[in-house]
Design a protein around this nucleic acid. Structure first.
Lengths: 185, 185
DNA sequence: CCATGTGAATGGATTCACAGCT
DNA sequence: AGCTGTGAATCCATTCACATGG
């Protein structure tokens, strides 16, 4: 596959692709292009995505359940090694075949599996507390689904997914398109 | 509030704030700073966020339910005017007080409420079909939760939320931090 | 004197364009 | 011929710095 092909399917220019890939070394063959299978393997390797990451999920509400039943994770190198909730009514039930465990077992699980990533799908009121618990237990990254900014030491990475923000982005794009439409006239 | 204060709470420089805001006109008072209440109102107005957007939700699985029970939408100017699903078992049940309706009623609802935004929380196999249906019914923006890239005419905006991608971003950040750590030594 | 709005300077990323490999 | 890797040129966003208004 040539850099132009790659670019086309990503919405980038061919030069862009070449510049970026060249940063990692000479990954392509002049006159031939890039061998995608091999390329993928080498990129994954160089970016630490060649081994599986154990993760824990905290908060088994609608979103938590959606995440645990999400088949694609394993294929992408993530394995859920524990699901947790504070609610005694939920603890002990199963979500996608995994038994929900009480928060008291969080720390041991994280230590046992060397978990570095935690997924947090809890109400916004609990967000900061759960984040603190995860960090105290030793994770160094949190994927946060609560509509609340959580603070953490700069040694811990946080990625937030906020549905409202996503909707706002979309609304803005649509509004912008409509505005440009009018301006053209 | 001064541009420096604003910047501090957003992780930006004061100059950045001023440059950006100045694009919309002279919103601040020299010597005094910006009046945040007023600023917010004027920005919202200028960006089409001053009126409510009706939305529909298609696919009432775990994610669909999470979205419909998400209180924050209304406060941010989005109102769910209809929830839909293909599954006859789900149609007729309630999700967060809203009756789930069959896909056959999608078009009429969108027309009746002048809906421009659709939220799609369906299995990846159904994603493209549902997107097509939404577009045919007249929406101009889709928030897609299916882990599948959907294609659409360039007149339609698409914003995708893919949990796996978010997790990958997080894993990359954590990996990067670990790598820099080692490099420093 | 404080803080904005804005030209000018800076710096980093994207694009161009081409020598060289297959 | 086809396509990479890469210096050089270009573009664009961020930062600087200051004249001007409150």
């Amino acid at each position: 596959m040539s850099s132009k092909d790659l670019g086309a399917s990503l919405g980038l220019t061919d030069a862009q692709i070449r510049k970026d890939l060249a940063l990692f070394g000479s990954l392509g063959q002049p006159g031939r292009g890039y061998q995608v299978i091999d390329l993928l393997k080498r990129l994954r390797q160089m970016m630490g995505r060649d081994q599986s990451w154990p993760i824990v999920v905290v908060g088994i509400g609608n979103i938590g359940r959606a995440i645990t039943s999400y088949g694609s994770f394993k294929g992408e190198g993530f394995e859920i090694v524990g699901v947790f909730d504070v609610d005694p009514k939920v603890v002990g039930t199963k979500s996608a075949g995994k038994v929900v465990r009480p928060m008291s077992e969080l720390r041991a699980t994280i230590a046992a599996h060397n978990v570095r990533l935690g997924v947090m799908a809890v109400p916004k009121e609990a967000a900061q507390d759960v984040a603190d618990a995860l960090i105290a237990a030793g994770v160094s990254g949190i994927l946060n689904f609560a509509p609340k900014r959580v603070t953490a030491p700069h040694t811990v990475s946080i990625v937030s997914v906020d549905f409202t923000v996503s909707l706002e982005q979309l609304a803005f794009q649509v509004w912008l398109a409509g505005t440009e439409e009018n301006a053209k006239k």
